[in-house]
Amino acid sequence: MEPPKTMELRRTGKLVKLQEQIIIIALMLCSLAAILVTVGIVASLAFEAFQFFQKIPVSEFLFGLEWSPQTAIRDDQVGASGKFGILPLLGGTLMISTIAMAVATPLGLYSAIYLSEYAKPRTRVWVKPMLELLAGIPTVVYGFFAALVVAPLIRSTGSGIGFEISSESALAAGLVMGIMLIPFISSLSDDVLCAVPKTMREASLGLGATRSETVKNVILPAANAGIIGSLLLAASRAIGETMIVVMAAGLSAKLTLNPLEAVTTMTVQIVTLLTGDQEFDSAKTLAAFAIALFLFVLTMILNVISLKIVDRYKTIYA
């Protein structure tokens, strides 16, 4: 006896349904990966940093003005207990990032304005991919460029006008990092500027405003939030950038406001503490994780704020 066709359909239907359930669950598990990575980062950093803070108090780490991570090799050694104050590193990081943003913000923003408001489509088609090429260059290449070309250039110009500039200077690292950030800022701002509705431009031009008046008085204020968001993202990238500073900024941890001196950054210290011979439990290696935790939290705050701002901006003109 053959079962009725409808029954057959229902039975296979059940099987298919089960299969599909499994597929959907598998998909869901995959999407958990993103969360797992974040959890992994936080857990591993926090775990090692916790061990670090058992040796060095948190307050000393956050507010200490001195950084010299040399710990005693033998217990009876004198004067080598190590100083783990993050402020000199933070100072160096902020100085280099500030220089970088000071270079990249005007260049990136004006490039974006020129490309979105003035450039002919034919120019745009050529210039945009060229700028994107600049964005695709690995940071190690920028670092090499900084150490090989920019730093000697700054040094010789400096000695030409009577300034003593060390071969590794915050200025060289900051300048090159700024170049790296130009395409980042220009492409994000370009997206933001293009999202401002065309009707807004027409309204202003129709009233007899020139293009620059339109940009300054209408488009930029309208794109304000989005641009601030993209600048914050760029700043976050500057703070976390590693290779350029490793190759061009130097290792001397001092609190200074002079951009011609060598400074060190959080990322540079992480690299120096963790490359080469290392024992896993010493305060020296654990310190790297504490710095990384600090760095992660700092950049995450910047990221979340900027993502929120950009998100809200997008919904205005969606």
Binding site: A203, G208, P221
Partner: peptide, 20 residues
């Protein structure tokens, strides 16, 4: 053209006030 547009104003299909 700036002077021209000051003499000849325009109102568009979709109301487009500035976000001000």
């Amino acid at each position: 053209v700036v002077a021209l547009r000051a003499r000849i104003g325009m109102v568009f299909q979709k109301a487009n006030p500035f976000p001000k």
